[in-house]
């Protein structure tokens, strides 16, 4: 099982990066997967259209929380357009572990919530590919 719960993933789960609320932010959204009770709240600080910092809070399984922690490092310094265009595969590559279809939803919860925050902040609609994740609850 160590191929699944490998060291890097567990390190992010137990020591999440950029974790905890941000006093002032430019974009914010909450994502929940009611099937497993996973929840993340994403906050983003922007400078000139670039992600200065993404922070998150929440709770859930190791996959959802570690993937969101990895995401905070992945998107730092990206432009809003670059981050909003990140494919799910980017976070799956980051996790670098085999995931069943059910656990993929856990893995992309943070990314979907970040995209919602960025699109909401820019006043643009969430892309269609996030519209079919109907198990998720976005707010």
């Amino acid at each position: 099982m160590d191929d699944l719960y490998r060291e890097n993933l567990m390190d992010h789960y137990q020591h999440p990066r950029h974790h905890g609320p941000m006093a002032e932010c430019d974009a914010e959204a909450e994502g929940q997967n009611p099937l497993c009770g996973d929840q993340v709240i994403v906050q983003v600080k922007l400078t000139d259209g670039t992600i200065e910092e993404m922070r998150f809070t929440g709770h859930g399984c190791a996959i959802s929380q570690a993937a969101t922690s990895m995401l905070t490092e992945l998107v730092q310094g990206l432009t809003v357009d670059e981050a909003a265009a990140l494919p799910s595969q980017a976070i799956l590559d980051e996790l670098a572990i085999p995931l069943s279809a059910m656990r993929v939803k856990c893995a992309v919860l943070g990314l979907g919530t970040l995209k919602l925050a960025l699109h909401r902040s820019a006043g643009t609609p969430l892309p269609a590919e996030w519209g079919d994740t109907d198990e998720m609850v976005w707010s």
Binding site: L4, Y5, P34, L35, C36, G37, D38, G60, I63, R103
Partner: peptide, 25 residues
């Protein structure tokens, strides 16, 4: 520990258990 993590690790031991709300939210 999240129940889904528990069920996934138990699966690696070929132990099949259910994790979640069991249709009783």
């Amino acid at each position: 520990v999240h129940p889904h993590d528990i069920a996934e690790i138990l699966d690696r031991h070929a132990v099949c258990v259910r994790a979640g709300h069991h249709c009783t939210q």
